[in-house]
Design a protein around this nucleic acid. Structure first.
Lengths: 237, 237
DNA sequence: CGTGCAGAGCTTGTATACAAGCATCTGTCG
DNA sequence: CGACAGATGCTTGTATACAAGCTCTGCACG
């Protein structure tokens, strides 16, 4: 998932930082990004900023229009649905490959994680981090931890849509309960039950999105080739 | 899947060209890539070459070691297995979403494709192109054509391993027959049958790889942090 | 003959300069 | 007052210069 090996480079820092800002919606969908502004703001030259934007563009999180400008891509309903399909397919298939004997270390991690999810309280961002780790660790149980990276790379649009959902009234506690039930079914060796609960959970997350879209249409891309507006300035720090 | 919009840029050309060379094994796994050499060879400056390599690195097809060098990544058995799992999960799940009434246009395309697979003869590269299109069109049948891009992005290592396999004695005709059976089951409305044949097909492809690995271990990464050797020069044109 | 050290020649990372093109603003004309 | 045209300032794409660091060669020395 990482693009570089070991060494700390400013490009890597900036890439991760910008990515985080986009995924957490601190950089709003549709916001204009200027390589020059970002470079000045971050105290580096255009080069590492530009290379970071290129990577984000490949992930679909940013759109770069040559000679026009770069923009945080609007949440694309089609891409959200694609990511949902991909995620569901992979996570459900992963459950089929659970070993007879679960790695007790990972199970312990999952239980700790669940406990922290319960205590997370109103901090949505913390819950999201835990949620991400939970699903990744579930895949590690069946030896497919690395495949999570491919899912994670493709689900940027889905994550942003989910954050829009959680900014609303839906409580993380509901999801934490669903997580608990999934893990319980797994440790009981009830694979079909785990599948069913996992599917219900993922679809519950997904079903919120249409509701959000009705409420905040400006954050979604209506047209694939939506017109970018340069002048909307970014104030992100 | 593409990283840029519309406009033709030399980066896009170079990226696609290098990617093709890596996937077709014309650039051998482990080969050293020099930004300067490539730039001179392609008649451009380092910038577009470098940016292309960064993208390929993010896909896992190239490894960039700062201040040391860039190398075509060796085929990683673990990544091949990951891609296989991902692909199987997604393609099988896609079959579950087949509509009652199949799009006749896509079915026609698939039949044409099969016919051309039969006629492909000894040209492995042509067969690979057709194979790729066949699987993508199958996913289009259930409306998940776009998700194919995510799979395609993750299966670079798998594709290279498959090419190593087809360079051996395995005949494309066997795979063409399997493709035919899959499509037949789909058009018969026999989803379970299609699933079974699809799984057998994908695993048949996968099972060749271990055999190849025994025969050509130097193309595979033994250690995750394999030592790169700079001096192995590339002669690719 | 083996070993160690130093320098040269690569490598990629970053900064900067220039090129080409789109969007917007301003001034002018109808 | 409205519409059109040109200049201006912004954008990204590409080329080039410099910086920092690793590898390897060649030579001196034990």
């Amino acid at each position: 998932m990482a693009q570089s090996n070991g060494r700390r480079t400013s490009r890597r820092d900036i890439y991760l930082r910008l990515r985080q800002l986009v995924l957490t919606l601190e950089l709003a969908p549709g916001a204009a990004l200027s390589e020059n502004e970002l470079a000045a703001s971050l105290g580096v030259s255009r080069t590492p900023v530009r290379e970071s934007l290129i990577l984000l563009a490949q992930e679909g999180l940013v759109q770069v229009f040559p000679k026009i400008g770069s923009f945080v891509s609007r949440v694309d309903a089609a891409q959200v649905a694609d990511a949902q399909f991909l995620r569901e397919a992979v996570e459900l298939a992963s459950l089929e490959d659970l070993p007879e004997r679960l790695d007790p270390e990972i199970v312990e991690e999952l239980r700790d994680n669940l406990e922290r999810q319960r205590r997370a309280g109103p901090d949505r961002e913390e819950f999201f981090t835990l949620d991400e780790l939970f699903h990744r660790d579930l895949m590690r149980l069946s030896g497919h931890g690395n495949s999570w990276a491919a899912v994670a790379a493709a689900k940027g649009h889905l994550d942003r849509a989910r954050r829009l959902g959680l900014h609303g009234h839906e409580s993380p506690a509901v999801f934490a309960d669903q997580h608990h039930e999934i893990l319980a079914a797994i440790t009981d060796g009830d694979t079909p039950g785990a599948r069913a609960r996992m599917r219900d959970h993922l679809r519950a997350v997904f079903n919120d999105i249409e509701r959000i879209r009705a409420r905040s249409p400006e954050l979604f891309a209506s047209d694939p080739a939506t017109v970018p507006v340069r002048r909307s300035v970014v104030v992100w720090e």
